[in-house]
């Protein structure tokens, strides 16, 4: 018998643990892994990029000409102002595809 499914069975009966940082093996653990992946992509634009921009533009002598640009507009401006919405839509899309796949695979097992 597959040792993973044995653990899952044992857990189902005895362990009532729900903990985001120590998820139960099986469905919850895989779901939490997908959530972590999505949260990392979310944190990239929420914290990562603003901190990077702050660090890059901290010099008060810096002029607009010296900033990396696309179509004549600063890159960070296009990204944090416009593309970020596309980014959020994309990560929600990928999250949904993965959760659909996970749910289907676990439902068919039951």
């Amino acid at each position: 018998m597959d040792p993973t499914s044995q653990t899952e069975k044992a857990d189902k009966n005895d362990d009532l643990r729900v903990n985001f940082f120590r998820p139960r093996p099986g469905f919850m653990r895989k779901e939490v892994m997908i959530i972590w992946g999505t949260l990392i992509a979310w944190a990239f634009v929420t914290f990562g990029l603003p901190i990077h921009i702050a660090w890059q533009h901290s010099d008060p002598q810096l002029t607009l000409e010296e900033v990396p640009k696309i179509f004549g507009i600063p890159f960070y401006y296009l990204f944090e102002g416009q593309f970020v919405i596309v980014w959020f839509i994309l990560i929600c899309f990928v999250f949904n595809v993965l959760i659909d796949w996970l749910t289907t695979s676990y439902r068919s097992r039951r």
């Binding site: 959530i35 979310w42 634009v45 929420t46 970020v84 959020f88 990560i91 929600c92 999250f95």
Partner: peptide, 12 residues
């Protein structure tokens, strides 16, 4: 950013 990213947190 805040009023769109919040939906990501809610969904996820």
């Amino acid at each position: 950013l805040g009023w769109t990213g919040g939906y990501v947190l809610l969904l996820v």
